[in-house]
Design a protein around this nucleic acid. Structure first.
Length: 490
RNA sequence: CGGGGCGUAGCACAGCCUGGUAGUGCGCACGGUUUGGGACCGUGAGGCCGCAAGUUCGAAUCUUGCCGCCCCGACCA
């Protein structure tokens, strides 16, 4: 392995690509636009899944699974939805291959053409609402609170590993409710779950908000989102929660009888986060030495590295390490003791830094004699020598400290790169520096579109907690009731 | 789909202009010396030079066609 990553300051996207590969998270596959998620990267994803899944269950949801294939007639039912996804669908047209009569290999058997094409799901609203039709008759059948973990395909023209791949993994929640208010509450509740996860598990501060019409999910009445800032000042949409109104119930004819014995269409929500979160995690915290992981999502939280010359030294160190490792594990900490003899300690230091292990304990013969260990933290790249007695509780504290420190650091970065902007002049200069711009907007899609054309900045969201503040649109000068968040985005 | 670049060992690249034994670094294997921040020395293995056709006594090198990948735009979580 060659040493050293590209520097963030010199080429941010090259740094990102190299980091993903070198840290063993994922690589590009032989299939265009699709990635191979490697064991270390998948271990992080599994920790995300576990935490999110627990949160979904805690809010009353159950998991289920729906088909990969969506009949074309389903997808085309909801007009806006169909239009939104039409340009990026993989389509199955045949169900059989045959030996090539003109030579080697296989060809599509023209006799095996499907009567109706199947779309590889870009999202599952249509299949699911087609199913819900059969599940819902009475208000007593509601709400239906279902989530599925799945892969989906969106045929992107340009892909970037984890951030935008043709196939990706995600979860999609799909709920049905008896009242509009209940559905809106669900939409907001799940946005809150995402924000909670981002802040407390990923240590990534997010802004919760509502999308403008231009950025809204195809088929939704309202799209809520969490937006995070990456270290290059660009915004990343980390999760979305949609209030779908009765749009899907109407086109799939999902009616229920309410308490007054009247037929009503059901109210819908859907919400999702994807492997894109991996990209957010990487870009929020990592540095020029490699990945930096928040302890709660790190597959290995503590690595212990012996520093020794002879097998006898190693045996003496191992005798000291084993009870320590056991003590840490008893605290619920995941520990790796790397006593492999294939690499030297210096190499291991660099390697575990690259992989973002939050805490490293170094233990050599000097420590054995002095009764100490060397404790190093990944986030600040500092180390200290401490007595081995009581080290387990210190490590536990340190993991919590790192979790909090990453969040604090990311929040400070966002605050330093968020600017209140009141003139178009300031807007155009500041957007070149990156970051979030808080500015007034006249509320029209036309203005938003013009701003995008001229600056590549989009409205990331209208923040939920934003105060009413009368002002003038930064572009058109027309009146505005509140500031919105502008940024260039991934 | 437009504009640019690149395909040579597992990886990163040189060689091509000016045709004549296929190279360097990292990694890999073996041996030795090392070991508190990516060790060093020695020996060795590893190639359909993207594919196809052409020019030539001779092609990694020149010509044509094709394929693939990367970057920049339009599209997007």
């Amino acid at each position: 392995m060659s040493k050293g990553l590209p520097k963030r300051s010199e080429n941010y996207s090259e740094w990102y690509n190299e980091l993903v590969k070198r840290a063993g998270l994922a690589e590009n596959s032989a299939v265009r636009g699709c990635m191979v998620i490697k064991p270390y990267g998948f271990a992080i994803w599994e920790k995300m899944q576990r935490a999110l899944d627990d949160m979904f269950k805690a809010t009353g949801h159950e998991n289920a699974y729906f088909p990969l294939f969506v009949p074309r007639s389903f997808l085309e039912k909801e007009e806006e939805h169909a239009e939104g996804f039409a340009k990026e669908c993989a389509v199955v047209t045949h169900y059989r291959l045959k030996a090539n009569p003109d030579g080697k290999g296989l060809i599509v058997d023209p006799a095996a053409k499907l009567e109706e094409e199947l779309i590889v799901r870009p999202t599952s609203e249509t299949v699911i609402w087609n199913t819900y039709k059969n599940w819902i008759q009475s208000w007593r059948d509601l709400p239906i609170l279902i989530n599925q973990w799945a892969n989906i395909v969106r045929w992107e023209m340009r892909t970037r590993i984890f951030l935008r791949t043709a196939e990706f993994l995600w979860q999609e929640g799909h709920t049905a409710h008896a009242t509009e208010q209940e559905a809106v509450e669900e939409t907001e509740r799940m946005l809150g779950v995402y924000a909670d996860f981002a802040e407390n598990w990923m240590s990534v501060p997010v802004i919760q908000g509502v999308k403008t019409a231009n950025e809204r999910f195809a088929g939704a009445v309202d799209t809520y989102c969490i937006e995070a800032m990456m270290q290059d000042g660009k915004a990343l949409q980390a999760g979305t929660s949609h209030f779908l109104g009765q749009n899907f119930a109407r086109v799939f004819d999902v009616k229920f009888v309410n308490k007054e014995n009247q037929l009503e269409y059901a109210w819908a929500t859907s919400w999702g986060v994807s492997t894109r979160l991996m990209g957010a995690l990487i870009m929020a915290h990592s540095d020029d030495n490699g990945l930096v992981l928040p302890p709660k999502l790190a597959p290995i939280q503590v690595v212990i590295i012996p520093i020794y010359r002879s097998p006898e030294d190693l045996a003496a160190i191992s005798a000291r390490v084993e009870p320590l490792a056991a003590e840490l594990r008893a605290e619920g900490i995941s520990v790796k003791y790397d006593d492999s003899d294939t690499q030297r300690s210096g190499w291991k230091f660099a390697e575990y830094e690259l992989r973002g292990v939050p805490v490293r304990i170094g233990l050599g013969m000097r420590d054995i004699e002095a009764g100490t260990v060397e404790l190093a933290r990944r986030d600040e790249l500092t180390k200290e020598t401490l007595p081995i007695d009581g080290i387990a509780s210190r490590v536990k504290e340190l993991l919590e400290e790192i979790q909090a420190n990453l969040h604090r650091r990311a929040l400070a970065f966002r605050e330093n790169n968020t600017h209140v902007i009141d003139s178009w002049q300031d807007f155009t200069t500041q957007i070149e520096e990156g970051g979030f711009l808080l500015a007034h907007w006249d509320g029209t899609p036309e203005t938003e579109e013009k701003i995008k054309e001229e600056t590549k900045a989009t409205i990331r969201c209208i923040p939920l907690n934003s105060a009413e503040e009368a002002g003038a649109c930064v572009y058109s000068g027309k009146p505005s009731a509140r500031r919105v968040v502008f940024a260039r985005a991934y």
